[in-house]
């Protein structure tokens, strides 16, 4: 069974183009041109699937500036009950907006214009983390010379064990669990240092620098621990 994508986008051209492109990739695409249509479709698909915990949708692509309201309302409605991945696609590029939506539960944020290749890659990442609440959490990571096994508390580079301090490990582990996804500064600080430290971004700078020094071949041109300026960090996927 193909994966079902709900696409909420008011621009007709972009909606058609995305629908076709996603259909080519084998997704079953349902489109909505407004907030109310999106919400109705979400309810309708859930009813059709016949399972109360299921939305009948595997992933939502959500535009923000909709004719009858802001897409954020749909995000809020969805997050009250479901953990299905949602990617925001919007022309608004302020980082304040990005951080706000990511913290509100969006899985990712793509600024228009974007390429289809980038959208598909982000969708794959989001789907992989689908249902993190029920599915077993990601505990291993392997990319290039780096392999990480969270359960065994083990980080290896070119096969050799790398010594990390407890805080460094906690920070890395947090990124591994959502590899490929942006984690905002606030989320990282709250998860690693505690909710009272969410403003101390300079902790992050220092510890990310230390992690890069230990894990990257050229810390000034990182390939693994990527920075999303003004938003957060992403472990390459």
């Amino acid at each position: 069974m193909s994966l079902r994508v709900l696409l909420v986008e008011d621009d007709r051209e972009l909606r058609m183009m995305l629908r076709d492109a996603l259909a080519v990739e084998g997704y079953e695409v349902h489109t909505a041109a407004s907030l109310s249509e999106g919400l109705a479709l979400l309810g309708g698909l859930a009813a059709r699937s016949g399972r109360s915990a299921d939305t009948g949708t595997d992933l939502v692509l959500l535009d923000l500036g909709l004719p009858d309201g802001d897409g954020e309302a749909l995000l809020a409605a969805l997050r009250q009950r479901h953990a299905i991945p949602l990617i925001v696609i919007s022309a608004r590029e302020g980082d304040g907006q990005k951080i706000h939506l990511l913290d509100a539960g969006a899985d990712d944020y793509l600024v228009k214009p974007f390429s289809i290749g980038e959208l598909l890659a982000r969708m794959r990442v989001a789907l992989r983390h689908r249902g993190t609440a029920v599915a077993p959490a990601v505990t291993t990571y392997q990319r290039g010379p780096l392999s990480i096994d969270l359960a065994a508390h083990e980080v290896r580079l070119h096969g050799a064990a790398v010594h990390l301090t407890p805080t460094e490990f906690k920070l890395l582990a947090r990124l591994v669990r959502t590899a490929g996804q942006v984690v905002t500064h606030r989320q990282l600080l709250a998860d690693v240092w505690g909710p009272e430290c969410t403003e101390q971004t300079h902790y992050l700078r220092l510890y990310m620098a230390q992690l890069r020094a230990k894990l990257e071949s050229d810390p000034a041109d990182p390939q693994l621990l990527l920075t999303e300026p003004g938003v957060g960090y992403r472990l390459a996927d």
Partner: peptide, 17 residues
Amino acid sequence: LQLDWESAEEIVGAVLR
């Protein structure tokens, strides 16, 4: 401006990417 304490290394890294 959205001012924060930033690392020059990270900014340069993001630019290179």
